[in-house]
Amino acid sequence: MKHYEVEILDAKTREKLCFLDKVEPHATIAEIKNLFTKTHPQWYPARQSLRLDPKGKSLKDEDVLQKLPVGTTATLYFRDLGAQISWVTVFLTEYAGPLFIYLLFYFRVPFIYGHKYDFTSSRHTVVHLACICHSFHYIKRLLETLFVHRFSHGTMPLRNIFKNCTYYWGFAAWMAYYINHPLYTPPTYGAQQVKLALAIFVICQLGNFSIHMALRDLRPAGSKTRKIPYPTKNPFTWLFLLVSCPNYTYEVGSWIGFAIMTQCLPVALFSLVGFTQMTIWAKGKHRSYLKEFRDYPPLRMPIIPFLL
């Protein structure tokens, strides 16, 4: 059985960083990364991007050496992705923050609204209902991160945790300040508006959870398998008939419901920014589905049925 020789060059300087002799033909890129780490321990596998061309796409960890368009002496180019952190850690951090930050404003801890309001309670029912909904949303997200989601990528750049936390924590503080303010004004149409908004919120939260469970069942634990998601017997998953990412559709719907319930401008802005970002993600995933699966359902749109 022939063996391969693998040289790894710096993608920027073309400097030879490592030479691997007698590499098995069936070795994966993940195994080559581990061998590279032995000579350069500062670059652990998650930091490494190996590619066939200095400006090309990163090879997948599961790619097999003998199936790549290389000879028995293969040249790979290395790029440092920077310090990495696990997706689970990032999600837990960015979701735990809003949960606790919101509660600080809800309980009106000292130095927020003035001494005479310390630890007082709002007289408006919608304020307490909003706290329950907000807390439920982020507790749900935390539990899904721990027990439901299966991540195709193990890590992301460390800098992302600061960007994500600034976004989630900042908006949580902004909306919580106004919703729990002693001078907060309840919704214009009173109980009817709150009940309608609560119904929207609850339905969308159930829908979002149902989609996450359906997506989880598509991917076996520990794998990166991708399949076309289809509706199940659960009615909340029937939205798969019309959109590629109904989890985002339901998520946006939840925040629209919360915005109607609280009639709070920061919540509306958070919903708008979230919708914009999720639309970008949904379009990317939709394109990926179309590219990977020739039999992908043609009627589906990325996030909004028939429109977007």
Rank of each mutant, 00 (worst) to 15 (best):
G114I: 09
L158M: 01
L35S: 13
I228S: 10
A214V: 11
L99R: 02
V252E: 07
L35P: 06
S135K: 02
Y230G: 10
F209P: 15
L290P: 06
E7R: 09
P266A: 06
M261V: 07
Y44R: 04
S58R: 07
F151S: 11
S254V: 15
C204F: 06
M278A: 13
F107D: 15
T145S: 11
L198H: 09
Y138C: 08
P54S: 10
S210Y: 02
K291W: 03
V252L: 08
R287P: 05
S49E: 12
L68R: 10
P25H: 03
Y113T: 05
L218M: 03
F258S: 04
G170F: 11
T28G: 00
L92W: 15
W43E: 14
R300P: 04
P220Y: 15
L241S: 15
Q84E: 04
I179F: 02
I260G: 05
H40A: 06
Y4I: 14
V64A: 12
L52T: 15
H3I: 14
I303F: 08
F119A: 00
T93G: 13
P302E: 01
A197E: 00
L299F: 15
H181S: 07
F209H: 03
K233E: 07
V64L: 13
W255S: 04
T93Y: 01
T13G: 00
P157I: 15
F100D: 07
L143Q: 11
L104V: 12
F111Y: 11
S86I: 08
N180F: 02
G253E: 04
I304S: 09
F240S: 08
V148S: 13
A96E: 00
R123T: 02
H149P: 01
R123K: 08
I203G: 14
T120R: 07
T120Q: 13
V109A: 11
A172Q: 00
E5F: 00
L206T: 06
E5Q: 14
I303Y: 01
F136N: 04
W169L: 06
F105Q: 01
K55N: 09
L265F: 07
S58F: 07
T166P: 07
R14T: 06
F111I: 14
Y167C: 05
H149S: 03
G222P: 00
T120W: 14
I200F: 12
L265T: 00
K233S: 03
W174D: 02
G190Q: 01
P45E: 01
R159M: 00
I139R: 15
E7G: 09
Y168H: 03
K285S: 00
F107A: 15
C133S: 11
I280K: 14
T225K: 08
D10Y: 04
L92H: 01
I101M: 14
A173R: 05
G56Y: 07
Y189H: 09
H26Q: 06
R287I: 13
G207S: 04
V273H: 14
P157Y: 04
K285M: 07
L129I: 04
L50G: 05
Q48T: 11
A46C: 02
F107L: 11
I179T: 09
D217C: 15
L146I: 12
G253L: 12
E15L: 09
T120L: 11
F91D: 00
L265I: 05
H286Q: 06
I139N: 14
A214G: 14
L290H: 00
N234A: 15
A176I: 09
K33D: 13
A282S: 06
R150Y: 15
G114D: 10
Y189Q: 11
K2I: 05
T249I: 07
F147I: 06
F100Y: 09
D63R: 13
P229R: 13
K22Q: 05
H181Y: 06
F111A: 05
T125M: 11
E15A: 05
R150W: 06
D118R: 04
K38L: 12
H115I: 01
H149D: 03
Y44Q: 05
H134E: 06
F201I: 14
I211L: 03
R150K: 05
A268Y: 13
E292V: 11
L196V: 06
Y77C: 08
V252T: 05
G97R: 02
R47H: 09
L198T: 15
R14K: 09
W87N: 03
F78D: 06
F91M: 04
R294S: 09
W281G: 03
K116C: 15
A268G: 14
Y138H: 05
K195R: 11
K60Q: 10
I256N: 10
K224M: 12
P302C: 06
E31Q: 13
Y102M: 03
P231R: 03
Y184Q: 15
K33T: 08
K38M: 10
R14E: 10
W238G: 04
Q193N: 08
L59E: 00
G257R: 03
N164Y: 01
Y4F: 01
I256M: 10
V88K: 04
E251H: 00
R51F: 03
Q277S: 14
H115W: 10
I8D: 04
N247C: 14
Q42H: 09
P302K: 12
Y77D: 04
L158P: 04
Y178S: 12
